[in-house]
Design a protein around this nucleic acid. Structure first.
Length: 115
DNA sequence: GTCTTGACTAAGC
DNA sequence: GGCTTAGCCAAGA
């Protein structure tokens, strides 16, 4: 069987799985950490292909606006919101307080929010 | 091969 | 704060 190279999806899933409990990350962040910059859409695509029996915390991935990518009112929207709420991620209306819950990788070296 | 779609983002109005 | 436009890349028809 050859060393199957890690698929793009698995790379993304791995990055998503690295998000700690009670934290969230944006699609752009996941793409970048997975080594796929500018491919935020691919992250959503990979999550869409995520098997139902997977343990990947897909609900910790949100868009850059701090909102769930699903349209409000949809079953998926409420499911993700409930999962986040159960982890202590509080919502302000339809938005998450990114200043508190956005995960910052390697806080010592990471440069996020640089002007 | 081209065209459309998509769990996105940033900038402009 | 919300809508529109443009940019981006990959998968599917």
């Amino acid at each position: 069987m050859r060393n199957r190279r890690i698929n793009r999806d698995e790379l993304i899933w791995h990055a998503v799985a690295a998000i700690p409990f009670g934290m969230v990350a944006t699609y752009g962040q996941i793409a970048e950490w997975a080594g796929l910059p500018r491919q935020a859409r691919q992250v959503g695509y990979a999550l869409h292909n995520l098997p139902a029996d997977s343990t990947v915390p897909w609900h910790r991935v949100i868009n850059a606006k701090g909102m769930i990518a699903f349209p409000p009112g949809s079953a998926q929207y409420y499911r993700q919101r409930e999962l986040l709420n159960s982890e202590g991620v509080l919502f302000v209306g339809q938005r998450i307080d990114m200043r508190r819950f956005r995960w910052k990788p390697t806080m010592d070296e990471a440069v996020w929010g640089v002007p």
